[in-house]
Amino acid sequence: MTDAPAKLTVVGANRLTPTQRRIVSVLMHAALLTVSVFMLYPLLWMLAASFRPENEIFTSASIIPSEWSLDAYVRGWNGLRTGFGTFFTNSFIVSILSVCGNVLACSMAAFAFARLNFRFRSFWFAMMLMTLMLPYQVTLIPQYVLFRQLGWVNTFLPLVVPKFLAADGFFIFLMVQFFRGLPKELDEAAQMDGCSPWRIYWKIIMPLSMPVLATAAIFTFIWTWDDFFGPLIYLSEMKSYTVMLGLRTFTDSTGESDYGGLFAMSVLSLVPIFLFFLFFQRLLIEGIATTGMKR
């Protein structure tokens, strides 16, 4: 951690003696660790549940399994007739494509809203916000009819194409807020030099917006990965199921369920999104930290 905020700590803390500083640091870590335990507990519980015998999952008071077994992982991985290998592949395809689509299409729309002038801009912006407000439960069936009309049902297209068409206003709105925070002088200077809007977008705004683009990438990946309603409605063959859909199919309140398999695969399903988060949060941190940029 040698980036700019480190300076802040030094500057702010230089009235303290080294001992005081150490005490503050220890206290901070203690506080953060305590909070972390609350955050971690579900994962530990799930991990334990995935290793213990099925009839102990809900009846044992201890978090430590009486015996450890990898059975649930083997059973879960090969479960649901198709196997989780396929589900993971499907989830990866859908999530990666969604990230590309969202980052590209939403940043373009956001650039238009934040940096360009055109007629009816506020009207379109209001329309975009409106699409955020209607509960999806009631547009589901018309949308299904539409996608079926297009011949897209039972393909990944209903899950991916909307992302390339910036259908999620959340990300547009998010990027608009960040783009508007960038100094206007940048565009104006570039425009004087004869830069086209495209070059301004691609060469100036995008590189300066790494934190928000990384944020959008992280959210898109995780939310697409975690989404089950879209896949539930649009995918109707087991071999096109995503991980989340697979997980929900492990348990059924009317018959025999496989809870061990559920928790084992739940643990595995967290690995990709956790790694994705760890990787992209670096971009978040490497942000612009604009010491040199004048406002």
């Binding site: 649901l80 199919t249 492990f250 348990t251 059924d252 018959g255 025999e256 496989d258 398999g261």
Partner: peptide, 10 residues
């Protein structure tokens, strides 16, 4: 199409 868990599916 049917509802059920792993055992029923198998």
């Amino acid at each position: 199409i049917f509802w059920g868990g792993q055992a029923r599916a198998d």
